[in-house]
Design a protein around this nucleic acid. Structure first.
Lengths: 333, 333
DNA sequence: GTCAATTACGTTCTCCGTAAGGATG
DNA sequence: CATCCTTACGGAGAACGTAATTGAC
């Protein structure tokens, strides 16, 4: 009896009385399925088997559907089953509903299986020379249905694209602030000395930064992250400013080739810098590196496809952890 | 313990194991509603209130939906709610599903409320002169959204249209066979003598059939039901065949007007027969009637709109009952 | 009499609401 | 610490299966 008393209390304490299990719109996919099966087979038993339920359950389901829509949908006796005019009217809608449900489900399944989807990433031009294209080529080969988008942009623009959701994630030499971004260090990319092959500095297999004292130095433009990092890398080295400030690494190579100076660039740009008479030499200083991060918006999940690429990139360097938002020396913004 | 034994037996005797409450397509309208509410409000509490459920139930519903589609649809913490890429992808489909469900339900509701729909009826030309048009005019006035169709056809064609479902029901002077048709007698329509106003028979207020002995009789075509019924009505009366056999009652009136004979017609055709010098006189014989039935396919329900008109017609003569399929004397086919 | 749909009835599962828990700002 | 989403839990209703009933041929 006390159980009943509790029930009564609950009935009256229910703050959501409007919709006690009788919403006008609780059409379920099962009911639509039942309708379509019966429409096609015109036979309760067969339709029930097709829906994997007992004839009894199927009959009840049809009754439920009819009660729900407020109209008898099938005329039936023990021998014949046929649509009523209302059933005919409902049929078109039922087919459309089923098609929409099916389409929505397949779309999500396709995305989950990476048969379709889209990945947009941003990366600095240097990493777009070989590194990102190689990553994307793998994806394209394994999942040709996924649309790929690559923005080769400078650091600030990369963060902007990530923040605005125009790319799923970015690869960047500069981490974002930790309130808005989730950042993981991928690797530290070493800088290389780039100079003429007949430059005295090119005699050894590697050089120290201090050996660059007095060398004529060609700068890259200040907007890129390369310039930012070089400021700290070259701190304490007395290089001589050549006066040039180039935007493209191919230009850099041309200037060097003609004996107008030398430069220091990240390894990923070497394919653009090295030519017949221009060579690249490792720098032995541990600090002659720039960090490469992978960056996404904090608290935003990635699409299934983007997550796959993220994992593939991030997992390649398994020892890394999320870094704090403090900018490293030489970083800006 | 015996209860558990029974349960175990049932588990193993279950012939429908495939789909034990985990069909891939049991998307319900409620879940779609929940999704749309949360997409719009971006707030669990508010969306829950809009759906008239507790925050807890709403949260569970979203989780259920996400488990069902196999993808996380919302990124959320205690402060922010946002669609994931998969959620964005699902959104369009969800809107379409909701729209289709809503449209289907409204359509059925509109039909139930007679705001829309269609009625097609067949009736003999005689009853299309005044009787059916009056019925249909009422419907049109009260329910202008319902499309109306009227076939003025002869008896056999009427049954054919009913059987083939090209009309919802028919009004007919001849009942169909009771296996395929469901028939209800509406009324017995009296026959009238139609003759020149100066005919001796027109002197009284009414006549007996036997008074027609020797009169020159103009027949209507044999294909119509009028001819069928006249055969039995005039059995035993020795009328003189005029040789004319007309299809239109206007023609009949013209012939009579010119003194070429007289005829006997159902009351409903009188508006077409009576003119200045042609008059109609009731016949006193009880058998000088033809039955008018309302006929529909057996075991086929009518559309909501058609049912309304059927009821309106059938209920006008409440004492009538379903007649047997035996053709009345004079009936054919 | 037979076959198929329905109804009756008991069981299981779904879904809800209350209440407690936990994370975030 | 306040807010809001989530989990835990118990109960009501939904939905199913078996079995009995109805109804049509």
């Amino acid at each position: 009896m006390s159980r009943y008393a509790v029930s009564v209390y609950w009935i009256f304490s229910n703050d959501y009385p409007d919709l006690l299990h009788n919403h006008p719109m609780d059409l379920s996919g099962r009911l639509i399925d039942a309708f379509l099966a019966l429409e096609e087979t015109r036979h309760f038993g067969v339709a029930a088997r097709r829906c994997n339920v007992s004839p009894s359950a199927f009959s009840q389901a049809i009754s439920r559907l009819e009660r729900l829509v407020g109209a008898r949908l099938f005329d039936r006796d023990t021998r014949n089953v046929a649509l009523t005019p209302e059933g005919e009217s409902f049929s078109a809608g039922a087919h459309r509903i089923a098609a929409e449900i099916s389409a929505s489900m397949s779309e999500l399944r396709d995305r989950a299986a990476h048969r379709t989807g889209k990945i947009a990433v941003a990366a600095p031009p240097s990493l777009c020379v070989e590194w990102m294209p190689r990553m994307l080529a793998e994806i394209r080969y394994e999942h040709p249905g996924i649309a790929l988008q690559l923005h080769d942009v400078v650091s600030d623009r990369c963060l902007e694209l990530v923040l605005r959701g125009e790319v799923d994630f970015g690869v960047n030499a500069q981490p974002g602030n930790e309130l808005e971004f989730e950042t993981q260090l991928l690797f530290n990319e070493p800088f290389y000395l780039v100079c003429r092959a007949d430059d005295p500095l090119a005699r050894g297999a590697s050089v120290w930064l201090r050996e660059l004292d007095g060398a004529v130095f060609i700068n890259v433009v200040r907007s890129g992250s390369v310039w930012q990092h070089l400021q700290s890398v070259l701190a304490g080295v007395n290089v001589c400013d050549s006066g040039f400030e180039v935007a493209q690494f191919g230009t850099l190579a041309g200037l060097i080739d003609c004996g107008l100076g030398l430069s220091v660039v990240p390894r990923s740009t070497l394919p653009l810098c090295v030519r017949q008479s221009v060579t690249a030499i490792p720098i032995r200083d541990k600090k002659a590196v720039r960090p490469i991060y992978i960056i996404r918006r904090r608290n935003r999940s990635l699409s299934s496809a983007a997550q796959m690429l993220w994992d593939r990139i991030a997992v390649s360097w398994p020892q890394q952890q999320v870094v704090s938002g403090k900018s490293p020396p030489g970083g800006h913004d």
